[in-house]
Computed example of a mutant assay.
Amino acid sequence: MDTLVLRLQPGDDLRAALDAVLKTDGIGGAAFVVSGIGSLRGAGIRFAGAETATRIEGDLEILTLAGTLSPDGSHLHLSVSDAAGRVSGGHAAPGCVVRTTAEILVAVLPEWRFSREPDPQTGYAELVPRRRSSQTL
């Protein structure tokens, strides 16, 4: 396992930046977010069971960030707090824009390849982890 330490800049889209990680030369096809903290100026969060994301406006603190990264897309969960300390959490949707910083630890798994494939049971594209053969390492 290898690790990457990322610092996203003001104006960066959190999800887009993490989706781009596996497109970096030599990273491979499987990674996960171990930890993430920072601040956002608004966020898109899809709450449990909801079909679409809810937009939360204003200055937000990232309390937690975790998920899997694959070439087919990411699956990220986050929790944020607003200026009054109210906490919201769920699936990180596009539009989570960094306000001052986002500090993220990513674990890269070179021996693995993640894909997202339709699952008839859930109706969603779900994670399919596959170990790479020793010939492709």
Rank of each mutant, 00 (worst) to 15 (best):
R130M: 12
T64R: 13
D19N: 15
A53G: 07
R131P: 02
T64G: 00
G44R: 01
L60S: 02
K23F: 09
D82W: 09
A48W: 05
P110V: 05
I45A: 02
W112M: 15
A92W: 01
T101V: 10
A50T: 02
R132C: 11
A102I: 03
D12N: 15
V108M: 09
R7A: 12
P71S: 09
L63H: 02
S88V: 14
A30I: 02
T64Q: 13
A107D: 10
E126I: 02
K23A: 15
D59E: 11
G89N: 09
A17H: 04
H77D: 11
G28S: 08
E51V: 00
L109R: 12
Q135K: 11
I27T: 13
E126Q: 13
P110G: 08
L14Q: 08
L18C: 09
S39W: 01
A83V: 14
F114D: 09
Q9H: 12
W112G: 00
D12I: 05
T101G: 02
L109P: 01
C96N: 13
L14E: 10
E61P: 00
A31V: 02
V106F: 06
A84S: 14
D82F: 08
P71T: 07
A83K: 11
T24F: 03
A16R: 13
A93D: 15
S39Q: 04
V98H: 03
W112Y: 13
R15L: 15
L60Q: 04
I104H: 05
V106Y: 04
A48I: 04
V87L: 11
L22V: 08
V108D: 06
R15C: 10
R86E: 14
V34S: 13
V106L: 07
L6H: 05
E126A: 12
D12E: 11
L65F: 03
D59C: 01
T136M: 08
R116F: 06
H91M: 07
R131S: 07
D12F: 05
F114E: 06
A83T: 14
P10Y: 09
H91D: 12
F32N: 11
L109A: 08
G38V: 00
T24E: 12
D25F: 10
S133W: 09
A84E: 15
S81I: 08
V97Q: 01
G29N: 11
L4H: 06
T101E: 15
H77T: 15
E117S: 11
R99K: 15
G36W: 01
R113Q: 14
G26D: 07
R132N: 14
P110I: 05
V106T: 05
V33W: 01
S70D: 10
S133M: 07
G67F: 02
E126S: 14
L78I: 09
Q9T: 12
G28V: 04
L6C: 06
Y124W: 12
A92S: 08
A83Y: 04
T100S: 14
G11K: 10
G67C: 05
P118H: 14
A93R: 03
P10N: 08
A107F: 05
G67S: 06
W112D: 10
L22A: 10
E51T: 07
R15Q: 13
T68N: 12
G26W: 07
G38T: 02
V87A: 09
H75D: 15
